[in-house]
Write a protein that binds this DNA or RNA. Structure first.
Lengths: 241, 241
DNA sequence: GAAGTGCTTTTTGCATACCAAAAGCTGTAT
DNA sequence: ATACAGCTTTTGGTATGCAAAAAGCACTTC
């Protein structure tokens, strides 16, 4: 029972190099499961409407039902799956209405975020933004959709972080991820305009012009919303990848 | 998909009077536990910082650990408790910074909500608002804090509902509840002003004046925020502004 | 007496097993 | 075929066990 001298925990006393990192997190399994399932949902491996059976997921992921259940419940509160009372989890099927509402909320949150960013941005913040902007424009020329989407997400996240409002950042993170899920399949043609607007946004933030930053972001978000609407009624084409 | 006209919705018996009620919900236990714990937190039975032991809560509530765990995890994602990796749940301790951030987010969400309400309000919507306004003013004369808080919450929720944006409503619900948790203990002196502003808001919505409704709501929220700040600086404070 | 040390206890996190109830499916009798 | 009955699958919850981590305690040592 009390075997081995395995109790050689890190020295409690003079921490010495302890400052570097907090050792290793036990890495809560449910979090890993959550990430895995979210990935599967976002990349359409698990299709909207699909029934997710706990036991299957558990076996597939090599864990027991418990962490799967907990992950599914969190996925529900974040809007990725629907938990029907006695039937289990189904991948959420986004409706047009819901997408529009999400885009609207995103618009107001991001607009505020841009204002805050303009008010708080330091020189190094601006530097980071310009770096991200450049990365985005490079992705633009390679026409790599995945990279573009990521660059876009990174820039928006950076703006939110600069605003120094964690509550806001977190919300934007949640909303944006879902919006991106809906929007990604049709994101192609707007990229160029989008990054021009980003450039304008970065400039406004660099100038510390909150009013203008907010305005630019608002227009940016509304453009996206408009694009979504224009695009959504061609024919039910499932263009995946 | 579900639009198949055949509607094979299991007609087990010809429904008879089934239309009235959806039978009885199986009543998901974790939800009941969630509600119970939230109530205990909000009314300060469980104090901020307190360590919540799964087994204790389970016994206290007469359920097993599992639903308690699930409730605690949802309480975490909603910001009511902190789940420390290997130590369990602690009632969240709100910081001044966080409260302010929450108030700021609430402000922008509510402002948008008011605009939407003004755009969408029907005659019966306005009627409801006026009813709630009246209820609030009655609570005002009785000086019953609890009733006042509830009336306030009801009115804001009604405005959000009128806006017809579910995503927004839900978010406002989450944010407002937390704000109220922080704010309730100091809600006294502003009630009168607050309800005057509510009256103005209702009037603007009734007129369908989105611009004005948004403005009124914005001022209303910012006033609340200001009150919160004024109140929490009794003596020489370290204002980081 | 103070400080550092190991040991025990507590609690979480996950696995496993089991069961009742509900929803879905299937097969059979009429 | 249709309606009914029974079977199967799946959830939601209980109970239990256990490894690992944190906290608390007691004990030794200086």
């Amino acid at each position: 029972m009390t075997s081995s001298p395995s109790g050689r925990r890190a020295p409690r006393g003079s921490l010495s190099a302890a400052a570097t990192r907090r050792v290793e997190r036990p890495a809560p399994l449910r979090q890993a499961v959550y990430d895995a399932l979210l990935e599967l949902i976002v990349n359409r491996t698990l299709a909207p409407g699909q029934h997710l059976v706990e036991a299957e997921l558990a076996e597939y992921l090599g864990v027991s039902r418990q962490p799967v259940r907990e992950a599914l419940q969190r996925l529900q509160t974040d809007g990725w799956v629907d938990l029907r009372p006695a039937q289990g989890a189904f991948v959420h099927t986004p409706t047009e209405e819901e997408a529009d509402q999400l885009l609207a909320v995103r618009s107001v949150l991001e607009t505020y975020s841009a204002k805050l960013a303009a008010e708080h941005a330091t020189a190094s913040d601006v530097k980071l933004l310009k770096k991200l902007q450049k990365a985005g424009e490079e992705a633009l020329v390679t026409a790599n959709v995945e990279r573009l989407v990521k660059a876009n997400a990174d820039l928006h996240a950076a703006v939110a972080a600069i605003g120094r409002n964690k509550v806001l950042s977190e919300m934007i993170g949640l909303v944006d991820r879902r919006v991106r899920w809906y929007y990604t399949p049709i994101a192609r043609p707007r990229s160029r305009d989008s990054w021009n607007e980003h450039a304008e946004l970065v400039a406004a933030i660099a100038d510390g012009d909150a009013e203008r930053a907010g305005e630019v972001m608002h227009n940016h978000a509304e453009q996206t919303r408009q694009t979504y609407h224009d695009r959504k009624t061609p024919e039910g084409s499932t263009e995946s990848d």
